[in-house]
Design a protein around this nucleic acid. Structure first.
Lengths: 336, 336
DNA sequence: CCCTGGGATTGAATTGTTTCAATCCGTCCG
DNA sequence: CGGACGGATTGAAACAATTCAATCCCAGGG
């Protein structure tokens, strides 16, 4: 494959001039430039990003590590991040940790080797042990959909406690007195905060924690939702409402109930979380807590860019907390 | 940041030995190895992928360029590809062309600069002009969800003509005599082939092309489906069935009809395409043509790896055509 | 005791770019 | 006419790894 040297020889100039034509065209005489461009075209020269990177010390790629790209919520985050990165002339490498700490560690290692200019990450665990180790590499990172534990990191999150409160508050005010909570992996902050919000909403209505029946689940996808739905059907007495930790679970629960002939919302009301595009198109359009996912991705990327571009150490870490919003649809209503 | 030289100095060995410890540990005496590993640990050394790549001439990353990551169909393809790549120790860089030829060209340029070891691509246009130009770089690529136009490329696709035939054949045999086809961008092969299959199914039942009412759409997402649904409602006489070029469109159409009080399937039957996970969870569970997306991604990646690993020129390009499968659900049934 | 064989280690060459001090050359001014 | 200036161009250093021929050293055999 042709390199800058071949181009230089072909055009009868030095390598430095070729480099200038590519990076600072205005600093080269028009006819020299033309000659070089002709040579580039003729040889099909493409500059080597790795050589560039080697010299620059870091790549022009930003990494995004999410829990699950099968969840449209994360796809939206990726969209927002990509948009912001693109504006800064950077590429985005999107990876899935699948909520596994091992995969997370593996990917973080990969990012360090790639010398990415920064990492956006939704941690797979509450403690953030992997990130602690990662911090050593001096590669900036921003927490996404997660509050910062200290002041040594930027973070963008949505108020999950408030989200849980909105969801269960809505159910309680519709008359429900017993609510199931289909949760996810207990080591995810989001899950715990939403529960806390749910409990707060119940408490506000004078109901104790026994009014929240937890149906645990180790994954956060539609299949897990179907399982949870089956378990819900077996509960005696059966709660009249379900709050699901995300929309995928909710869609699964809905499917399960539907198949068993349980009517939604007449027999059981359902509220999901994230308000993914498919929530509105569900068997019964799903009430859900909307999160500004695209904005979150965009802001996270912008914070990261600010930190990465910062030469003088003037960057101050910031935590942005966005507000969720309840979107009421057919799946939630007063019990009979 | 510490380099291999720093490690060598710290451990009191040469750079070559450090390299050996990393890449061929068995070729180094145990205590030397231990000393080097200790130095690596102490300095927090992380090998530079760019330097590695520069020497190797190509990166250890495979690119995947799809039309839209917001479509779960492509997410499944990505999953399959990622799995295969991972087994070969490669990373995958997933990018969206958004059906734009400009973005496609831009990304292909980026891939060339990155010297990726290969590209999996779902072309944004029928002619494949961008790929023709790309072929010049001698970077192997495999067409995904698209048949190869010649024998100079590997390709993995699903028989879209047959898919269209299955979908419309099903509708016709349920008694429908007028079917709307909500299509997408006309320069996509998939869209045209599915139409052709639809026409073939009609012809088989003795119906002419006038029985297929095309509702064009320039995008392939839920919002476009809603628009198409609105246009469908305005048609006189209104077709009794709709075949949608993909499930996102179908879900949008469904939402639209639902909102207008048109009953599915009693008034209008709907058949989608792709059988994404959300099709089963739709307002009315969606009849759809299932495509083996994960398998397609996996096979494409495997073909690419075979071509990329081929030193002796023994690789022969292959086209794999997979078969779609009709999944009947509630959204399709005989008209009154 | 010398030589040989072979495993361990070395160190220089190589990869393709960017950057920057040095050089070149033509012009302008004194 | 000489010197200074400035824009264009040059060429070598630096980046961080891999690779491989050369070297080193030790054991075993003659």
């Amino acid at each position: 494959m042709a390199g800058i040297k071949d181009v230089a020889r072909q055009a009868g100039v030095s390598v430095g001039t070729v480099s200038n034509v590519i990076n600072r065209p205005e600093a080269v005489l028009p006819d020299t430039r033309a000659r070089v461009l002709a040579a580039i075209e003729e040889l099909g020269y493409v500059r080597s990003e790795s050589a560039r990177q080697l010299r620059a010390g870091r790549s022009r790629i930003m990494a995004l590590l999410v829990l699950d790209m099968g969840n449209p919520f994360f796809v939206d985050i990726a969209r927002g991040a990509e948009r912001a990165a693109r504006e800064a002339g950077l590429g985005v490498m999107v990876c899935n940790s699948g909520q596994s700490q091992e995969e997370e560690a593996e990917y973080l290692g990969l990012f360090a080797e790639q010398r990415v200019c920064g990492v956006l990450v939704t941690p797979a665990d509450a403690t953030g042990g992997n990130l602690e180790a990662f911090a050593r590499h001096r590669i900036p990172y921003v927490l996404v959909d997660r509050v910062a534990s200290g002041t040594d990191t930027c973070a963008v999150s949505v108020d999950d406690v408030r989200g849980g409160m909105l969801a269960v508050g809505h159910l309680v005010s519709a008359g429900h007195r017993s609510v199931a909570y289909v949760s996810g992996p207990g080591d995810l902050h989001q899950i715990r905060d939403r529960r806390q919000g749910a409990l707060a909403a119940l408490a506000e209505a004078g109901l104790g924690p026994e009014s929240l029946v937890e149906i645990p689940s180790d994954r956060l996808d539609v299949a897990a939702g179907r399982d949870a739905g089956a378990r819900l059907l077996g509960l005696v007495p059966r709660p009249t409402a379900v709050f699901c930790a995300n929309d995928l679970l909710a869609l699964g629960v809905l499917q399960s109930l539907y198949a068993a002939g349980v009517r939604v919302p007449q027999d059981v009301a359902i509220v999901g979380y994230d308000d993914i595009e498919f929530a509105a198109a569900a068997a019964v359009p799903l009430t859900s807590v909307r999160q500004p996912a695209v904005v979150m991705g965009k802001m996270a990327a912008e914070l990261l860019l600010e930190e990465a571009d910062d030469e003088g150490g003037s960057h101050r870490h910031r935590s942005v907390v966005l507000q969720p919003e309840l979107v009421v649809r057919a799946s939630s209503a007063a019990p009979r």
